[in-house]
């Protein structure tokens, strides 16, 4: 996956975020989104206890007690606030975060997400993934279309452990945008020069095609 494809995904998700929304960004491609928001202002929430997270500081301003959930140094935006972990997850679980943008290992055709564990490997980390899946008002998945070994990430049924019963609203890959409605997956946009037949080949999940895409 090239950097330009990662940027394409980040830019497309950035279009989905609305002025003034509270947004939690997962690790990987989601962390690139702030670079593509233009003049649009959103409030980034970090689950270790910060609302109003700003960009990476200059080296001389790094403070390892002002960090993101990925444990990377960050800064404050104007109007930022600090709170403890239980308050932070009150925000997340209680439906006060407008959008969570998360990576995924697999997403099934109903929108159920697996993003915390690989079968057969030691499972010793979940972090805030399940809380975000359960609680954010909207869930957008930003992910490569297939996994590193070429196997489909968009599957008919999850073979990786589920992150929760709550379904994603949308997934953006380097090839396409899909939306999930009432347990069904819809192709709403094509983002590369891929044909629909080629897209079907690399997508195990069944999807319907919106008229405007055909």
């Amino acid at each position: 996956m090239s950097q330009s494809e990662r940027i394409k995904i980040a830019k497309r998700v950035a279009e989905e975020l609305k002025e003034g929304e509270a947004v939690n960004l997962g690790v990987g491609i989601p962390t690139m989104i702030p670079d593509y928001l233009g003049d649009k202002k959103v409030f980034l929430q970090s689950e270790n206890g910060l609302l109003g997270m700003g960009p990476t500081p200059a080296d001389e301003d790094i403070d390892m007690d002002l960090i993101s959930a990925s444990k990377k140094p960050v800064t404050y935006e104007i109007g930022a606030s600090l709170f403890d972990s239980s308050d932070s997850f009150k925000m997340i679980r209680g439906g006060h975060i407008d959008v969570a943008v998360l990576g995924a290992l697999q997403v099934d055709e109903t929108g159920e997400v697996a993003n915390w564990a690989v079968p057969g490997e030691t499972i010793l980390g979940v972090g805030g993934a399940m809380d975000l899946v359960a609680g954010a008002k909207r869930m957008i998945i930003a992910s490569t279309h297939v996994s590193k070994d070429g196997s489909p990430k968009l599957v008919s049924k999850l073979t990786f452990p589920s992150s929760g019963k709550r379904k994603a609203d949308m997934i953006v890959t380097e090839h396409a945008v899909f939306k999930f409605r009432e347990g069904k997956m819809y192709l709403v946009e094509i983002l590369s020069d891929i044909s629909i037949d080629q897209l079907k080949e690399i997508t195990e999940a069944n999807f319907e095609i919106l008229e405007k895409v055909k």
Binding site: E47, D84, S85, S86, S88, F89, I92, R93, T122, I123, L124, G125, V126, G127, G128, A129, M130, D131, G135
Partner: peptide, 20 residues
């Protein structure tokens, strides 16, 4: 953990904070 020398209980971060 894989050698059986450490017991680990994995708890979602928000559940951990709320349980405490």
């Amino acid at each position: 953990w894989s050698k059986g020398e450490l017991e680990i209980e994995l708890i979602p971060q928000g559940t951990l904070a709320e349980a405490i």
